[in-house]
Design a protein around this nucleic acid. Structure first.
Lengths: 351, 351
DNA sequence: TTGTAGGCGTTATCAC
DNA sequence: GTGATAACGCCTACAA
C-alpha cells in the first residue's frame, strides 16, 4: 500500500493520475480545457486520495480570500444578532465566509480590528454602526477594499450603506403620539457624540415636536453618559432602569416616552411599573427596533420596527455585488421603518 | 519620487533598507538575531513604506492561520449570542480571529460548514450544540484539528468539552418545586432525538420526579416536533405560544412547568396569561438559561442559570490551549448551574 | 489538449 | 549577524 499523504496537494493528484499539475488545476477549477478522458482520470485520483484544494495557497495567488469581515458593536444585542443572522444566510449562499469582530463602541478597538482584518485577510468589510471617526476608514478606502456600512451614515455620504430614515422614523412616532392626544413627550437616548444614527433620531424628535407645535422641555429628555460606560457595556436595560428610578423621584413625568431602543424601553417600563406608574395608563412608551421579545413583555411594546434581518441581507448582498464587480444601481439603500402598534401606547384624547 | 508599492512586501523592505529578505523577516518576527543598527534600518524602512506582513503567505508557510471556526445553531438566540460574545473576548485577547457559521440544527448544513472550515482554513473548531452524528466529526479528528464542544457531550465522551450538568440542573429544579409544594410538574421540551443536552434534561426530569416520589404523567409533558420545523426556525416563543393555546383547551394543567429554555417559558407564560391563568398564582414556571430579559418580563422569570459568557470564554480558552500545545489538566469542564429565584414560582404548600 | 515554469510573500535552513 | 535560497500549494502564461 502506497503511503497516502494526509493532505494531498495538487501535485500528488497529478502524480497519481499521471498528468501534469496544471491539468489537475484545470479540472479542479472547471476550466473546459481538458479532454473528458483525462478529466475522468483526474477526478478518480482526487476521489481516491481525498483531495481538497488549499484555500490559503489559492488566496496567495489570486488575492481573493472569499472572506468577509463583519464589525459590530455587540453580538449579544438582539438587534445586532438578528442582522448578523441575515448576513450569515447570504454569505453561506454565495460561498463566502464571515469573520466577526465586536468593538463595543470603542473606536480604538474598532481601528485595531479593522487593521487586523484588512491585512490582506478579507475581500470586503461590513461595518455596523461604527464610530463617526472618518479617519479610521481612510485606510480601507486607500487600499480599495470594498466597504459597506449598515445602520449608519458618515458625514461624507458617498459611501455604500444600508440605512433607515431615522429622522423620519422618530418624527412619525411623535405624530402618532400626538394623534393619540399626547402633548408631553419624553425622549431617552444615548449621548449624541460620534453616532450619526443617534443624532438623526434626536433630530427627528426635535423636528416632530416642532411640526406638531409641541414645546421642547429639557425636563423630559434623558440623555446620559452612563450608556457609554465601558464597565456597563451591554447593560442598557439596567442602566435605564437605574436612571429612571432616580428620574421618577426628581422630575415630572411626560405622558409618553420615545426611546432609541426596545432594550431601553424595557428598562424604562420596569422602573415605571415598580413605582406604581401604569403603562400605558399613566405613561405611554414607544421603543425602537421591534426585537423578538416585544410581544412577550407586559404590556406588549409599541415600537418602531427596523427590518433587521433584511438590513443584514441587503448589506451583505450589496457588499458582495461590489466585490464581484457587479453593476450597482444604488449604493445607498434606505429601508422602510414601520410603527408596530401594540399595547404600550394609550390614547389620552378624552382628558 | 520613487513609486511606492501599495502593499509593500518583505522584499520591498529589504531593498529599501539595503539588507537581505531574511533579515527583515527576523526583525518582523522579533527574533533576536539582528544587530541593533541593522534592526533600526529595517524598522525605518518598514515605517516609511508602511509594511504589513501578509498573513496569507505566512499561513501558507507556517500552516497556522490564527483563525478559529465557531459553529453555532443560531446566532440570534440570546443564549448563543452571549456565549459567542465570551468567545470573541478571548479570541481578541489571544490574537486570533473567529469565523462564524450557523447551522440551524441541520446536520447536513453542519457537515458542509465544517468541511469548508477545515479545508486548511482554521486552526481549531468550537462547536456549540452540534448534532449527535459522530460521523461528521470523524474527519476533524482524522485531520487532527483541535476540537472543543460547548453545551454538548458526545456518547464518546473523551472529547474536549465545556458543559453543565443537565441532569442535575433539572433535578434540582424539581426538588425546588417539590419543596414549594408542587406535585404536578409539567415539562416542555424539544424532541429528544440527536441532542444529548435535551436528552439529559429529560433524564433529569424523570429522575427528579422519581426522587420525590412523584408520578410521571404524560398529560403534563409537551415534546413537539414543531420545534424542529425548518420553517419555524428561531421562533420558539411563537411555537410554544401556539402549542400551549391548544394544550390549555385540551388537557389538564399541572401546577408548575419546567421548560428547557427561557424563550419557551416566555411563550408559555403569554399563552397562560391570555387564558386568564395567572402566573405564578395558578401555574408556576421555571425556565432555563437566565437570559438578560428574565428580569424584565412579568412575572420576572425563575430559571436555571447557565453561565453563558463563561462557557464561551472557557471553551475558547480550552481550545486555544490545545492549539498552542499547553498542558491541559482537564479537557472536560463542567460548569455550575444555579436556580435564580424570581417571581414565576409560588409556594402552594398551604393548599 | 497537455506540460513547463515562474511567482504570490513568507519562513526556515544553511552557508558564509 | 547576515544573506541566499528552497520550499509552502496553487494559478496561469506560454510553449509544445
Amino acid at each position: 500500500m502506497p503511503n497516502q499523504p494526509i493532505n494531498p496537494s495538487i501535485k500528488d493528484i497529478a502524480k497519481e493520475a499521471g498528468v501534469a499539475i496544471s491539468t489537475v488545476s484545470y479540472v479542479v477549477n472547471n476550466k473546459d480545457l481538458v479532454a473528458d478522458k483525462t478529466k475522468e482520470k483526474v477526478l478518480k485520483a482526487i476521489d481516491k486520495l481525498g483531495y481538497n484544494p488549499n484555500y490559503i495557497a489559492r488566496s496567495l495567488r489570486t488575492k481573493k480570500t472569499s472572506t468577509i469581515g463583519v464589525i459590530v458593536y455587540d453580538i449579544s444585542n438582539p438587534f445586532v444578532a438578528q442582522m448578523v443572522k441575515g448576513m450569515e444566510e447570504v454569505v453561506k449562499k454565495r460561498g463566502y465566509m464571515m469573520v466577526l469582530g465586536c468593538t463595543f463602541n470603542d473606536s480604538i478597538e474598532e481601528e485595531r480590528q479593522i487593521n487586523v482584518m484588512i491585512n490582506q485577510f478579507i475581500d470586503g468589510l461590513l461595518i455596523v454602526s461604527g464610530s463617526d471617526n472618518e479617519k479610521i476608514y481612510k485606510k480601507i478606502i486607500n487600499r480599495k477594499i470594498p466597504l459597506v456600512f449598515i445602520d449608519r451614515e458618515l458625514e461624507n455620504n458617498d459611501r455604500a450603506s444600508v440605512i433607515i430614515n431615522n429622522v423620519d422614523a422618530v418624527e412619525k412616532a411623535i405624530d402618532y403620539l400626538f394623534l393619540m392626544g399626547h402633548k408631553k413627550i419624553g425622549y431617552i437616548s444615548y449621548p449624541l457624540e460620534n453616532q450619526t444614527t443617534i443624532k438623526q433620531r434626536y433630530c427627528g424628535y426635535l423636528k416632530g415636536l416642532k411640526k406638531n407645535s409641541l414645546a421642547y422641555d429639557p425636563e423630559y429628555v434623558v440623555i446620559d453618559k452612563k450608556f457609554m460606560d465601558k464597565e456597563l457595556e451591554g447593560k442598557d436595560m439596567e442602566i435605564t432602569y437605574n436612571l429612571m428610578q432616580q428620574f421618577i423621584k426628581l422630575k415630572k413625568l411626560p405622558t409618553a416616552f420615545i426611546t432609541i431602543s426596545d432594550i431601553i424601553a424595557y428598562g424604562l417600563i420596569k422602573a415605571l411599573k415598580e413605582n406604581n406608574i401604569k403603562v400605558p395608563e399613566d405613561v405611554s412608551v414607544i421603543g425602537f427596533d421591534n426585537i423578538m421579545f416585544d410581544d412577550y413583555i407586559s404590556p406588549p411594546l409599541t415600537t418602531i420596527k427596523q427590518p433587521k434581518r433584511t438590513m443584514g441581507i441587503t448589506g451583505m448582498n450589496l457588499l458582495l455585488d461590489i466585490i464581484e464587480g457587479k453593476n450597482i444601481e444604488n449604493s445607498r439603500i434606505v429601508l422602510p421603518t414601520e410603527i408596530i402598534k401594540r399595547q404600550s401606547v394609550k390614547s389620552i384624547s378624552l382628558y
